[in-house]
């Protein structure tokens, strides 16, 4: 599979980086429908990689494959050399994949702190027996991990919502909570599924700033799926375009902007 449109500049930028995630030729079918067909891409360390495409192009399906919610019939997905296909979602989390959800996947009856602590669930230890007894390690862990949660809350300005059930928070704040919870998971790779969908211009701008801050300060690689083209073009380093489950282009934002196939997919045939 040749990768379209990688130019010299990109090679230079990517040159001293190693690939974190390697997706090789995956195909995912549901009954007769092929959601993803033969898609390959790489995400480098500390890179913000964006996937765009019309609705139903297979973007969220790719996320589900990365998270081992779906198991593609063909191809391989490797994160830092570890194969993720055929595993279970918690395994992918342990390998360092965190995710935000398109239509908010927060636990709406729990407060902000609990939601964020749940992000750290996989980093904590102690089974049900330890929980029932709740002393020693279990208690110490609560305190240690709570400290990290507070740091994330500070980074994303969520402190004053601390004790509130997330179901009562405003939509924009809930979206930020999604990001915060994903950060609490201490991922290597962050999957952002439409983080600014339904937000106004200011909120979008704030979110973009948070995303860039996370990338620069914490050095986390990200895959961004988003419909807001302005945002994608502004923040993404490389973009992949999907249409009907197939990759139609990959490259720098400027290249994507002028790619005829992309324009065709988005605006319809212009002949």
């Amino acid at each position: 599979m040749t990768v379209l449109g990688i130019n010299k500049g990109l090679d230079q930028r990517a040159g001293n980086r190693t690939a974190l995630l390697t997706v090789d030729d995956i195909t995912m079918r549901f009954g007769g429908v092929t959601a993803i067909s033969g898609v390959s891409f790489e995400v480098f360390r500390n890179e913000l990689f964006a996937i765009i495409g019309p609705n139903g192009a297979g973007k969220t399906s790719i996320f589900n494959c990365l998270n081992a919610v779906y198991h593609p019939q063909e191809g391989s997905i490797k994160l830092d050399g570890v194969d993720l296909i055929g595993t279970k979602p918690p395994f992918t989390v342990a390998q360092g994949i965190a995710r935000t959800f398109q239509n908010i996947g927060l636990f709406k009856n729990l407060d902000v702190v609990s939601n964020l602590m749940l992000g750290r669930h996989h980093l904590m230890r102690g089974g049900f027996m330890a929980g029932l007894i709740f002393s020693g390690t279990a208690k110490k862990q609560e305190i240690v991990h709570r400290r990290r949660v507070e740091e994330v809350m500070e980074l994303l300005d969520l402190q004053h919502f601390r004790g509130q059930p997330v179901g009562l928070l405003a939509y924009g704040v809930q979206k930020r909570m999604e990001l915060a919870r994903a950060l609490c998971m201490e991922p290597k790779l962050l999957l952002l599924d439409e983080p600014v969908a339904g937000m106004n211009a200011t909120e979008t701008e704030d979110m973009a700033r948070y995303i860039l801050e996370i990338k620069d300060e914490l050095g986390i690689s990200m895959i961004l799926v988003e419909h807001d083209m302005h945002m994608v073009m502004d923040v993404a380093e490389r973009i992949m375009v999907l249409d009907f489950g197939q990759k139609i282009a990959e490259g720098l934002p400027d290249q994507i902007r002028s790619n005829p196939r992309v324009i065709e997919a988005y605006l319809g045939a212009s002949k």
Binding site: V69, V93, F101, G105, F107, S114, L118, H121, H122
Partner: peptide, 18 residues
């Protein structure tokens, strides 16, 4: 907390590692 996460949204709980 994991129990309550499963109650509220079992699938997203699984995807964040519960």
């Amino acid at each position: 907390r994991a129990m309550m996460a499963v109650r509220d949204r079992d699938l997203s709980a699984e995807i964040i590692g519960v």
